[in-house]
């Protein structure tokens, strides 16, 4: 237990936050790097994966592709992908940028499947009758997507992004071994110097970061869920009885879709 205490004290010690300290300090810089790398990679992957997922979810074309991709991605050892890219990029990039380029590419690639699956599963989970009615009302395909499917799919879309973010935060720790900054630096230097404070402090910091970010995204997920679909605060009892069947059915669909959106680490 004293190890944890000591590591926590190390984590909050202002001396470890002094700008210009020797790497891997200051802690704040590593933390900011970690968040920044994660944000950039998730953003790039979302730009690629969301439109693709919307297209597949809306048209139903390429479902098999998503299913195979997410299944295959789970089998891919992240450490192997990182190292392979780092050696591969080393063939034609200078030493200084190789690590960065390889790490960014790997993290972006790893973030794609969950986001894609979330977007696709979200759109697909929208009741087809609703979409049919929207089309019959005279909505164009883009309007159906923007005004009906995406709003209703929002919780699952965010769920996919949430899984991607966790994946990237976790893998970015490992990426410090090919020269990426971030909290992984603190842990690897701790292992190198056999410094318990750094090993544990770094590990706890990443864990806290992951939990906090995940919690925030969970809140976002709840917030973006269309108001009508959240657990109703007031529903007349008679109505509740009458609609409980359909709600159970849609909850089932949602669970299926959710299951296909969450991903490996």
């Amino acid at each position: 237990m004293e190890f944890f205490l000591s590591a926590l004290i190390w984590l909050v010690n202002p001396e470890n936050y002094v700008p210009g300290s020797q790497s891997p300090l200051p802690i704040s810089d590593r933390l900011i790097e970690h968040v920044l790398y994660t944000a950039i990679c998730v953003l790039i992957s979302a730009v690629i994966a969301l439109p693709l997922g919307f297209y597949i979810g809306h048209t139903g074309r390429g479902r098999q592709f998503v299913i195979s991709l997410t299944g295959g991605a789970r089998a891919m050892p992240t450490l192997g992908l990182l190292m392979a890219l780092s050696v591969f990029f080393g063939y034609f990039l200078s030493f200084t940028v190789t690590g960065f380029a390889a790490a960014f590419t790997a993290l972006t690639i790893l973030a794609i499947p969950s986001t894609l699956a979330g977007a696709y599963a979200g759109i697909e989970s929208v009741d087809r009758t609703t979409v049919d009615a929207a089309r019959a009302s005279g909505m164009s395909e883009m309007q159906i997507l923007a005004k009906v499917e995406i709003p209703l799919a929002m919780p699952l879309i965010i769920g996919g992004i949430r899984a991607s973010v966790l994946q990237v935060i976790a893998t970015a720790v490992v990426a410090s071994y090919i020269g990426l900054g971030g909290i992984g630096r603190i842990i690897s230097s701790g292992i190198g110097f056999n410094d318990n404070d750094r090993i544990l402090g770094g590990a706890l910091l990443v864990t806290i970061l992951a939990l906090v970010v995940d919690g925030m995204l969970a809140l976002v997920q709840r917030f973006v869920s269309p108001r009508a679909l959240r657990t109703p605060i007031f529903t007349p009892r008679a109505v509740r009885r009458e609609t409980s069947d359909t709600r159970a059915a849609s909850a089932g669909r949602r669970a299926v879709a959710e299951a296909s959106a969450d991903e490996g680490k």
């Binding site: 048209t59 139903g60 299913i67 789970r74 087809r128 049919d132 299926v256 299951a259 296909s260």
Partner: peptide, 24 residues
């Protein structure tokens, strides 16, 4: 047999949901 992949959900009802909306 679908290796490494989750079993896909049953094919959905495609009531005219293609872009061309002609298969309903």
């Amino acid at each position: 047999l679908r290796l490494l992949a989750r079993q896909p959900s049953p094919p959905r009802q495609r009531g005219g949901a293609s872009w061309s909306s002609s298969s309903a």
